[in-house]
Design a protein around this nucleic acid. Structure first.
Lengths: 198, 198
DNA sequence: TGCCCTGTATATCAGACCGATATACGATGC
DNA sequence: GCATCGTATATCGGTCTGATATACAGGGCA
């Protein structure tokens, strides 16, 4: 199950350009799967070469041509095969937790900043899911699958936030009154720099 | 923050071989960061070339030589810099949730098998974390960071399991008595095939 | 008017990562 | 006697990541 398969899945809901597909991933899969243009465009080229999608080019004034992709019969079959045969993985990669594992090497202010930032990220993601649900539900009821994965995201991120809020204090040194804690590492104001994921 | 940095972190607890480092990742970071030999050995080679770790070779009878790596002063500094400067990411990649999003294209039996397997995976991971805590705590108390990330893993995976158990029924078609649900995709017995991650 | 930023839309590229595979041998299990 | 597991190294093709390039329309703003 790679980006190619995900593109087939996105196209199973209707024709789309690479740009649209990325939008779809961001709206729909943001909390459990993301792909950048660097994955999507090569994937679409490869799918076209394999005859799993067809492509027609729509000229535009000024802007680059839109390339509208459509699932072929073979593509639809290939996607169903993937759904049937994939052994699904489920994997977290968290530099946030790595950093906290090394809490003993972090300055308290830095630690607090990291934790606060992660809580804000969870809040943002939760808000995004709620908006997605509301916005889609306005058009037509969410499919059971979509509803389930949104609920999953909300449940897990809410639990994560609660755990962090309840236990963040345990990461700080015991703060023995006056026992000035050595500053191991200076905290540094960080530009909020969200990775671009082009 | 890449595998190189994680290797520096692992070596901050003492000298180790590439093999040891992988074991360390599996024991300690399994639920939020994993790296295979294909990442670790090149990383160690590159760190050695950069002077951030030193390496001495211990001959063995029969088996390949052990290459024991040690953090240099420069390596320790580089690691602390990374801890101070990294903007931590936190990212889930779940084919499991992708599959469930497309529940409408899955045969009910397949759906059940996927969900059951994921619940077993969570159970296994939870057991692993508990064992790690018990086993380490026997030697010396867990560091606050280690304790926190273990608790995080347990909280999140418990919440995920509970959510799945509570809502899995919503993924099945409304099962109108006798309204034989079309079998869209046959379920297929899968060899339990856990990815090797060499 | 000029300037910058955002949104639409394509695409490439170096570097990192993933998972499979190869090699080798001792010990353990059946 | 043979298979499997654990120790220990390493490479490799294929994929993914994140930065960057190009190009123009439209809106905000001074």
């Amino acid at each position: 199950m790679d980006v190619k398969d995900l593109c087939l899945g996105a196209l199973s809901f209707g024709d789309a350009t690479g740009y649209d597909i990325k939008k779809f991933f961001e709206n729909t899969f943001s909390h459990f799967f993301l792909a950048g243009y660097g994955s999507i465009y090569p994937a679409l080229a490869s799918l076209t070469a394999a005859g799993l999608v067809s492509c027609r080019t729509l000229a535009q004034h000024g802007k680059p041509d839109r390339k509208l992709y459509r699932l072929t019969a073979a593509g639809r079959r290939a996607f169903l095969d993937t759904l049937r045969d994939t052994t699904p993985r489920h994997r977290l990669k968290s530099e946030f937790l790595v950093l906290l594992y090394f809490a003993h090497l972090l300055a308290p202010a830095r630690l607090q900043a990291i934790v606060d930032q992660q809580l804000r990220n969870f809040d943002g993601n939760l808000k995004h899911i709620r908006q997605y649900e509301d916005c889609c539900a306005a058009a037509q009821p969410l499919s059971p699958g979509a509803h389930f994965v949104c609920g999953y995201g909300k449940a897990v991120m809410t639990a994560a936030s609660e755990y962090i809020r309840a236990h963040r204090h345990s990461l700080l040194p015991p703060t023995g009154r006056g026992a000035a804690p050595r500053k191991l590492i200076q905290a540094r104001r960080q530009p909020v720099h969200t990775a671009s994921r082009n």
